[in-house]
């Protein structure tokens, strides 16, 4: 197995809004190795979200190369991209994007519905295992509106895990959560990463970025700076030291 999972060279993305052309990405070179834990940072409009969308094959670059797990993305059709997303990638969104009025279990099952090789029995087993992995085994039959924000995000993470992806992409996964819950989500990510999962996430909070192994900072459509995290935070320790009385409990249950 190749060590590099993502290889990007000379990547550009232009948006045409009426007469005006917006250069969202202006020549990005980046490679990410298997098992890395990368935080993409930057201000609003710096191109970090565009980058993540392209990494997730939700969007195609205007120019430049993108190799994902040894596959040249430019050669794939729309349907092949969908298949790639289904089998190699997992997404976590800031707004969770769970289906309303649908149990946690059914939400987690969803990606497997689009994979005709997975039979219904296996689908259920894998969804249960994914929920167990994020510590929600007892919440399987709850609807999203019966879960707290943190729990909903865990369901979303379980959903991104269920197809056993090579990489998890998270767009501001802690953006809607309070501090403690954010750390709990990061703890989950660190656990997954320790077990070998490649994770790339976007954040604008420097604190949250310090849980990663590497930071990539975007500015005006270019990579401004790339560095290994020197004083890495471990969520488990941070949580232990967090004074309990100062924590605002938003969680309903």
């Amino acid at each position: 197995m190749e060590k590099t999972i993502i290889k990007i060279a000379g990547l550009r993305k232009d948006y045409h809004i009426g007469e005006v052309t917006v250069h969202a990405l202006r020549g990005i070179n980046l490679s990410i190795d298997r098992g890395e834990f990368v935080a993409v940072m930057g201000m609003s409009g710096s191109g970090k979200s565009t980058m993540l969308n392209i990494l997730g094959c939700l969007d195609v670059p205007t120019k430049g190369e993108y190799w994902l797990d040894g596959v040249d993305i430019r050669t794939l059709s729309k349907d092949q991209l969908a298949r790639l997303r289904n089998q190699k990638l997992g997404f976590v969104f800031q707004a969770y994007n769970l289906l309303p009025r649908t149990t946690a279990l059914e939400n987690v099952e969803l990606p497997l519905f689009y994979n005709s090789q997975v039979k219904s029995k296996e689908r259920k087993e894998r969804a249960i295992r994914a929920l167990e992995a994020v510590g929600l085994a007892d919440r399987m039959h709850h609807m999203p509106n019966q879960l707290s924000g943190g729990q909903q995000q865990r369901v979303a993470i379980a959903r991104s895990l269920v197809n056993d992806p090579v990489m998890i992409l998270a767009d501001e996964p802690t953006g809607n959560l309070d501090t403690r819950t954010s750390f709990e989500i990061m703890e989950l990510f660190q656990d997954l990463n320790e077990r070998g999962r490649t994770i790339v996430y976007v954040t604008h909070e420097p604190d949250i970025a310090r849980f990663a192994t590497r930071n990539v900072v975007f500015r005006d459509g270019l990579i401004q700076r790339e560095n290994m995290v020197t004083e890495r935070l471990y969520a488990r320790d941070v949580l232990k030291n967090l004074p309990v009385e100062n924590i605002e409990e938003f969680e309903t249950k």
Binding site: G56, L58, K78, D79, A82, R83, R85, N86, Q87, F91, F93, N97, L99, L110, P111, Y114, N115, R159, N163
Partner: peptide
């Protein structure tokens, strides 16, 4: 969402 998790 369905598209992002692999729906064509």
């Amino acid at each position: 969402l369905r598209m992002s998790i692999g729906g064509r």
